[in-house]
Computed example of a mutant assay.
Amino acid sequence: MNNYILFNKFIILIYCIVSYIEGKGYRAAVIVALLVIYVTINVAIYVINSELIKLVAVIISIVLCIHLSYYTSSVFILLLIPNLSELSALYFKSVFYSILFLLIPAFTLEAVILKNYILIASLSCIIIYICLRTENRFRDMNKQIDALRQEKDKLCKLTIIEEEYKGQLIYAKQLEERNIIAQEIHDSLGHAITGSVMQLEAVKLLLDKDKDKALFILQSAIESLRNGMDDIRFTLRNIKPPREQIGINKLKLFIDEFKRKSTLDIKLTYGGDINKISTEQWSCIYDNAVEALTNAVKYSKALSMVISIEVLNKILKVEYRDNGVGVLTIKKGLGLQGMEDRCAALKGKFIVDGSRGFSIIMLIPVANN
């Protein structure tokens, strides 16, 4: 708004000067001096920060316009239009006041200048109205942006709180599992060892006096310890998760973390009997997934990647495919070479294709059981 008013002032000023020259005006030196003062005052309005001094400068500019119009040429009354528009725009923020202020000088003008005055004043009011509407829209948009920014900050805080809460839950679950393991060991192996120690002490006392009874107590202690070990094995088997759950969940966790840190859209699919996948094979799948995702972000300029794991009858097929730029001539650097070496260590076949995006396929033999 301020830029428009200042620009409007100088356009009307040029028009007034041209009209004055065409009208063969006089006292050119005085007019130039007054116009220089007018320009200085109006530029100062947008440099000064004090609202009171700005108001005084606008009033002085209005008085100077009236002086120029009455003592030199009536065409300079047109300079009142931007000053009055500025007064209403800066302090009243209303088109109604602009129209009201601009109507006041119209009653004192001659018919020759009145036509130009009404035309320029009307255009000024229209442009002021448009500028005020635009300012209001920008103000509303800024408020919406601030509101969205606050919502984003709230969501970020909630995300942090959620992550902390999830961490606490995991830690609490770990403590609970440790407590269960400790209680199981105490209830089974602890009692068995305590009883066996007491029996062995009795064996030591009876070994010379009653050899048969000592052997009977010794056998009982052995059976007690064997039962305790069986209980421990049973407890550990129940607590220890299957390796396929460890492998797939570890891969899912890494993918979720990677998606949060990058813009890459990652999809994981798997099928077949994943129980056949060994711990070493899961390790290879995980390590190669880390390398493939890193390369997709650094080199392929990809937006998405699909990781597919399929267990067939005797073959494990793993594919990492992105939708990046691809490459016709493939040069195996340290990353690709490391992926191939891990696959070869499992007696697998390593296939790379850069024709449609970038694809890496591993074919690894699996056991039938």
Rank of each mutant, 00 (worst) to 15 (best):
L119W: 12
C156R: 01
A147H: 08
L79P: 00
S69I: 04
I62H: 07
C65L: 06
I66H: 03
N142W: 03
L78V: 03
K54W: 05
I130E: 07
F107K: 10
N116C: 06
I161K: 04
E86H: 05
I145T: 07
F107M: 15
L80K: 03
L132R: 09
L55C: 09
L148C: 02
I118Y: 05
I60H: 08
E51T: 14
E163W: 00
N116D: 15
V95K: 12
I81T: 02
F92N: 12
C156Y: 03
P82E: 09
T134N: 12
K115G: 03
V63S: 12
S124L: 04
S88A: 15
V95M: 13
S122V: 13
D140Y: 07
L79W: 03
P82V: 11
A147T: 08
K54Q: 15
C65K: 04
R133I: 09
A57Y: 06
L79Y: 02
S98W: 03
S124A: 14
A111Y: 09
N116H: 13
T108G: 04
Q150L: 08
R149W: 03
Y97K: 13
K152W: 03
V58A: 13
L80N: 09
F101P: 01
I126K: 01
Q150T: 07
C156W: 02
L103Q: 12
I120K: 05
L158Q: 01
E110I: 11
C131Q: 14
Y97R: 11
F96G: 12
D140P: 02
Y70W: 10
S85D: 10
K54E: 09
F92G: 02
K115T: 14
L84Y: 04
S50Y: 10
L155V: 07
C65W: 04
V112E: 15
Y70E: 12
I145P: 01
I128S: 04
I104Y: 06
P82M: 09
E86Q: 05
T72H: 13
L64T: 12
T108I: 15
R137C: 07
V75M: 00
R133M: 09
I126T: 12
T72L: 11
K157P: 01
Y97S: 14
